[in-house]
Simulated assay, not measured.
Amino acid sequence: MKTFIQNGDVITIPAPTAGITSGDGVLVGNLFGVAANTAVEGEPAEVATTGVYTLPKATSTVLALGARVAWDNATKVVTTPGTGRYAIGVAVNDAGNGAATVSVRLDGIGTVAS
């Protein structure tokens, strides 16, 4: 197809302000993904928009398998959906109070703060 560019599971973007580190959650506008490489601001960066990733979680947040999750861009952690947070997918494991991470299946769709 003449207009096809790529599947979109991993896309290349300019690294945002302050750059990114491989494995970090990245929010640029309404696009959320996980950095596949480390890049300084403005350099090409690969960002995965689908798949399952272990991401940092607000330690006091309790998430059950299958729970909708959101990204808190101020603190750079996964938490429950709420005002000012960006829906990103679902938890694929239980992550209780005190847990520092949760595995998340990314939706791969554009997001907006609720």
Results as ranks from 00 to 15, higher is better:
85 R>F: 09
39 A>G: 09
43 E>Y: 11
53 Y>W: 15
84 G>D: 05
54 T>M: 06
81 P>T: 08
90 V>M: 03
98 G>C: 00
17 T>E: 12
103 S>L: 03
47 V>S: 05
58 A>S: 11
47 V>N: 06
41 E>K: 12
113 A>P: 10
75 T>C: 03
94 D>N: 15
47 V>I: 15
32 F>L: 11
46 E>D: 15
105 R>E: 11
47 V>R: 10
94 D>W: 02
78 V>Q: 01
50 T>Q: 13
104 V>M: 03
24 D>R: 10
17 T>A: 10
50 T>N: 11
2 K>F: 07
95 A>S: 14
8 G>D: 04
97 N>H: 11
73 N>E: 01
4 F>L: 14
94 D>L: 01
47 V>E: 05
104 V>G: 00
64 A>F: 03
79 T>W: 00
39 A>M: 12
16 P>M: 10
13 I>P: 04
106 L>F: 10
11 I>R: 15
65 L>V: 07
113 A>D: 10
41 E>A: 13
78 V>C: 03
31 L>E: 04
112 V>A: 13
58 A>E: 11
15 A>V: 09
44 P>H: 13
94 D>I: 04
67 A>Y: 02
107 D>C: 00
6 Q>L: 04
40 V>Q: 15
107 D>L: 02
65 L>F: 13
50 T>H: 12
90 V>A: 05
18 A>V: 00
66 G>V: 08
27 L>V: 09
40 V>G: 14
69 V>G: 01
10 V>C: 06
105 R>I: 00
1 M>R: 12
87 A>I: 12
60 S>G: 11
38 T>N: 09
78 V>N: 02
8 G>R: 07
37 N>I: 14
58 A>P: 03
99 A>S: 15
2 K>N: 08
53 Y>L: 08
11 I>Y: 14
18 A>D: 10
34 V>E: 02
101 T>Y: 06
21 T>H: 04
39 A>I: 08
96 G>N: 08
93 N>I: 08
60 S>P: 06
104 V>L: 03
13 I>V: 15
11 I>G: 10
56 P>K: 05
77 V>S: 02
91 A>Y: 03
77 V>I: 05
76 K>H: 06
23 G>K: 13
86 Y>I: 01
111 T>H: 04
23 G>C: 08
97 N>W: 06
2 K>P: 03
33 G>W: 07
23 G>S: 07
83 T>S: 14
20 I>K: 01
24 D>P: 07
111 T>V: 13
54 T>I: 09
107 D>T: 06
15 A>Y: 06
98 G>D: 02
28 V>P: 04
109 I>P: 00
87 A>G: 13
48 A>Y: 15
6 Q>P: 05
7 N>L: 08
63 L>I: 10
95 A>D: 00
100 A>R: 12
24 D>K: 12
66 G>L: 12
105 R>W: 11
6 Q>V: 03
92 V>P: 02
25 G>D: 00
89 G>R: 13
90 V>N: 04
58 A>D: 09
41 E>R: 10
95 A>N: 05
47 V>K: 09
84 G>E: 01
77 V>K: 13
29 G>D: 10
59 T>N: 00
68 R>L: 11
107 D>M: 00
82 G>A: 15
102 V>G: 00
92 V>G: 02
34 V>P: 02
